[in-house]
Nucleic acid binder design. Sequence first.
DNA 1: TTCCCATCTGCACGTTTGTGCATAGTGCTT
DNA 2: AAGCACTATGCACAAACGTGCAGATGGGAA
Lengths: 320, 320
Amino acid sequence: MMQSRQSDALRAAQLYYLQDLTMDAIARELRTSRSTVSRLLSAARDSGLVQIQIRSPLDTGPELEGMIRAEYKVDVHVVPVVDTLNEAETLDRVAMQAARTIGPLVDSNAIIGVAWGSTLSAVSRHLTRKITHDSVIVQLNGAGNMQTTGITYASDIMRRFGSAYGARVEQFPVPAFFDHAATKKAMWNERSVQRILELQARMSIAIFGVGSVDADYPSHVYAGGYLDEDDLNVLANSDVVGDVATVFFRADGSSDGITLNARSTGPDLAQLRQVRRRICVVSGASKINGLRGALAAGLATDLILDEASARRLVRFDGLG
Amino acid sequence: MMQSRQSDALRAAQLYYLQDLTMDAIARELRTSRSTVSRLLSAARDSGLVQIQIRSPLDTGPELEGMIRAEYKVDVHVVPVVDTLNEAETLDRVAMQAARTIGPLVDSNAIIGVAWGSTLSAVSRHLTRKITHDSVIVQLNGAGNMQTTGITYASDIMRRFGSAYGARVEQFPVPAFFDHAATKKAMWNERSVQRILELQARMSIAIFGVGSVDADYPSHVYAGGYLDEDDLNVLANSDVVGDVATVFFRADGSSDGITLNARSTGPDLAQLRQVRRRICVVSGASKINGLRGALAAGLATDLILDEASARRLVRFDGLG
DNA sequence: TTCCCATCTGCACGTTTGTGCATAGTGCTT
DNA sequence: AAGCACTATGCACAAACGTGCAGATGGGAA
């Protein structure tokens, strides 16, 4: 009997979305009450049975998207926001739309790399369910730091992704940054770590935000006790503009010779670029410099960002 | 300024479907009235900007779909209908759901073969718009007969497909059946005809119904004056069970030695089977024998049919 | 300029939909 | 068999939505 609920939901969804019946009519057809139908439909929606997708007409699309798409060769989704919204509300909206945009891209047998940070945390809260088979969520970079193991925060994000897509979750239990490059080297030879690295090498989708060194509200990485005073000084005095998954880069997208990267735990940029679908989510105009670097480095195939950032991205285009 | 309507619609759609705002809130954001937003959204829906799709969970799906899928190796969509509906209402529902199921499958650069008949006519009336580039709609078989040229009826169907998908329409201006096989042979060497045949050979999608010889309400082909008395007698006394696009076949799916086929204008079965996606739409339980033959012949990759027919299809499975 | 036609807009109303709450059902434990 | 915890259901109300209509708006043609 419990079984029939799922199939009722399917039936209701067909009648409602594909045949334009009213809930009332559907209720009579299923011999139940209208309110039950309402609930069946919302269950159908957030169990991923019903997929709603918006395909912006690539040609006639809003000029903003067109310009960014042309300039950086990424598939861009600009999230409309009003400027009365504060930082947190904007993030929430971007995250919601990002989550729903990602949904349709996820498929069975996918290996999905997920970074962590405030952006990804927000996205993870808005994921819509979609049942897949044999998918894996793999953590892109370590989360431990000097104060905590960072486990709960990062693993909450991972867990949400896992349960939304019915996927196995593979955590990456190392610190965000090693204190000594040698330790990283040693760990990278451990078989437990190699298992994760191999998964990462086979990723079909990667999802990440960007950190920007000069952001008004600095990213977790710069503020959360992951780096010590010396490291921060080195960063401030170099020409590094931002990071993706703890790996730093300059405005022109280059990353060679940045010593800190020898201690960070995310996939190096060349490896990241191998991933077929690389989704970058950005909210907040102060991340603009980091974002420019990431785009210059060709790290993203898909970019989801708020309207204000999109404007800044095209406006001051030449400058740093 | 006219331009802004399209982009308002996109924006409204994002806010409504991806961010769950109410129309009221969207109206304030766009500085317009709620009713305008309601209209923008419905414009967005039926211009194909918003795509709603239902993915039945292949495993846990209703047993009926599962059984058919397993038995005939087709991707099946059972359209739920109540048994109080009459033939015409059922057709309408099946057609609406078929139209919306087809939508997401159509892509740019597609060559779409379309048959004609009461089923396809109904489907064509319910198509939802979707803008594609360089797609072509090509007519699968001729439509002329003894009384009329059949042009308007068939071409209305074609035109609707064309305008729904923004595609070029290629008609096939020959009779449904030639009187003499020799005439067909001659025509098939004409360059104007060969142009169509070449398009058909490159189809990426074919959409058709089935005719069933013993249907209660006979298909157009059997009733519309396309065949003469003698032809119908021959059919009745042979073991032919039905046709797809004027090409006849037997219950086991074979079609060799059916002389009428030398005079019919649709693609032969072997050629049809080359098409990547072959969508068969069936409404009305009396077409069941024709449908069995078509499935036995492996003509469809996707089957959309009403629930009652689906039941009959699995129930009496062994019999003819 | 003036007029006209076609389209867009907001209002008001009726319809459709979401949801808190009390109740009924279901399965599991003791 | 009774009790319990949990979930599903229907009702009633409030919120959200669609649409006919009348007035506004805009872009030609005379």
